[in-house]
C-alpha cells in the first residue's frame, strides 16, 4: 500500500538539549491527527530511545518527522539518520539486553515493540538510519 506524506519537517540533533524539543514536536504531530495518549506516549518514548542512540552512538544527525496517510489511517513517521560508525551485527543489536554502551540494551528491541513499522539500515563506517511509523489506530 502506498503511503503519502501530508507534511514534513527536519531537525538537526547535535546535543542533549535538542532531545526535549524534538520529543515535543513529534508529540504535536500525533496530537494533530488525534492520536490517543497511549499511542502518543509509545511514539515519543520510541523517539526518545532512537534520538538517544543517534547522539550517543551516531555522534548526532538529522531527524525527519512526517505526517503520513495510507488511505485507511493517518500516522506519524520519524526517521533518524546519522553518519556514525554503523552497527556491526544488527541481529545482536536487536536483542533485548545487548548494549555496547553499558546501558539496558532495550532501545532498539523495545522501540520495535512500541511502533507499527520499524526499519533499520546500517552500513559499517557509513552510519545508521532507523525509520518508525506509528498509526493513529495502530
Amino acid at each position: 500500500m502506498t503511503t503519502i506524506t501530508n507534511s514534513k519537517e527536519e531537525a538537526l540533533i547535535i546535543r542533549e538539549q535538542d532531545v526535549v524539543p524534538l520529543r515535543n514536536r513529534v508529540k504535536e504531530y500525533g496530537v494533530k491527527i488525534g492520536m490517543s495518549i497511549l499511542n502518543q506516549t509509545k511514539l515519543i518514548t520510541a523517539t526518545s530511545e532512537l534520538v538517544r542512540n543517534l547522539l550517543k552512538y551516531g555522534g548526532g544527525g538529522k531527524v525527519i518527522i512526517e505526517s503520513v496517510s495510507n488511505g485507511r489511517d493517518n500516522g506519524v513517521r520519524v526517521t533518524f539518520i546519522d553518519n556514525g560508525p554503523g552497527i556491526a551485527d544488527i541481529t545482536l543489536a536487536m536483542k533485548d539486553g545487548y548494549s555496547t554502551g553499558k546501558s539496558l540494551g532495550l532501545g532498539l528491541p523495545g522501540t520495535k515493540r512500541l511502533v507499527n513499522e520499524f526499519d533499520i539500515k546500517t552500513e559499517l563506517g557509513n552510519g545508521t538510519t532507523v525509520t518508525i511509523t506509528k498509526w493513529k489506530n495502530g
Partner: peptide, 14 residues
C-alpha cells in the same frame, strides 16, 4: 505514574 507511561514501560521491556 500515568497509565500510558506504565503500559509503555512494560512494552519497552523495562
Amino acid at each position: 505514574m500515568q497509565p500510558a507511561v506504565a503500559i509503555t514501560l512494560v512494552e519497552l521491556g523495562l
